[in-house]
Design a protein around this nucleic acid. Structure first.
Length: 270
DNA sequence: AAGAACACCAACCGCAAGGGG
DNA sequence: GCCCCTTGCGGTTGGTGTTCT
């Protein structure tokens, strides 16, 4: 036996809310409040809706302080900065944006902001007291020693950006990038962080299962864990794994590489 | 003009956390 | 400490509108 459903699904209305239902819910809440129990609320208010549905409708749409309409560039940058630090904690991100709901922020990110970021159109980011906003999947000792900030959340925003490596310039143009150029920046084995910029170029990794090749025609594939491997070695069961394993920082709106990064691993590619 | 593809977003679902008995 | 219930959250879905071919 699983958990009992929160309401009798056969006897509740689902789908879009009618203006009449909105008015009923709004009037009830403005008169009585939630009463501390959303589950019992629809019955008291005379609505044939699930309590969860009522709560969602109120929080995401009917609340008087909700801000409807487009996001400002300032809001974009707040969302991106916070997402970079904490990942998809939409409620926390939304709490920093008055009038915005977690659902709003989440939808906005998924439908627009990801693309905006990849097109290189985000104009500015916060730089913290240590001079950089760092993004990485794992703590790196050198960064810790240098007192650089680190965050444990990877950059999932890049997980579905497309296939192969591509380059977005700050002017918004995009082109594919030979892997041997990418490998100037892809340095050491272990963590699949896949986004980095250098000299105003942003490099974005591929999705799982895609393949890329360098200018000499050597093939590379991503293995089942999303790690980029040399296709030749892959087939000979001598896998070499190449990943980004260093912190990034935002410098003038670009993601930059701190000077402490050791590029020596890159040599193993050629 | 019509169908397909894409974009947007409201709403739903399931899970986890927290609180009360 | 355990169980049950409610709430809050994040991921996902599906309907609708818009743009493209």
């Amino acid at each position: 036996m699983g958990r009992a459903p929160c309401c009798d699904k056969a006897n509740v209305k689902r789908g879009p809310w009618s203006p009449e239902e909105d008015a009923t819910l709004k009037n009830y809440l403005q008169t009585h409040g939630t009463g501390g129990n959303w589950i019992a609320l629809p019955l008291k208010a005379g609505l044939k809706r699930c309590g969860k549905s009522c709560r969602l409708r109120w929080l995401n749409y009917l609340r008087p302080d909700i801000k409807h309409g487009g996001f400002t560039e300032e809001e974009d940058n707040v969302i991106f900065t916070l997402y970079s630090q904490m990942g998809s904690r939409w409620s926390l991100i939304a709490s920093q944006l008055p009038g915005r709901t977690d659902n709003d922020v989440k939808n906005y990110w998924n439908t627009r902001l990801k693309k905006k970021l990849l097109a290189g159109k985000l104009s500015s980011f916060n730089i913290d007291n240590n001079g950089g906003l760092m993004i990485s999947a794992a703590k790196k000792p050198e960064a810790a020693a240098a007192s650089l900030p680190y965050y444990s959340t990877p950059l999932p925003i890049l997980s579905d950006v497309g296939y192969g490596f591509s380059v977005s310039s700050s002017s918004g143009t995009s082109q594919s990038l030979p892997l041997d150029q990418v490998m100037r920046f892809s340095l050491s084995p272990s963590c699949p962080i896949l986004h980095i910029s250098h000299n105003n170029v942003v490099v974005v990794s591929s999705q799982e299962g895609s393949a890329v090749s360098d200018s000499a025609g050597n093939g590379y594939v991503e293995d089942s864990s999303g790690i980029l491997v040399d296709d030749h070695h892959h087939h000979h069961q001598q896998q070499q794994q190449f990943n980004f394993d260093f912190p990034y920082e935002f410098i003038n709106g670009e993601i930059g590489v701190p000077s402490l990064v050791d590029f020596s691993h890159a040599e193993s590619l050629t």
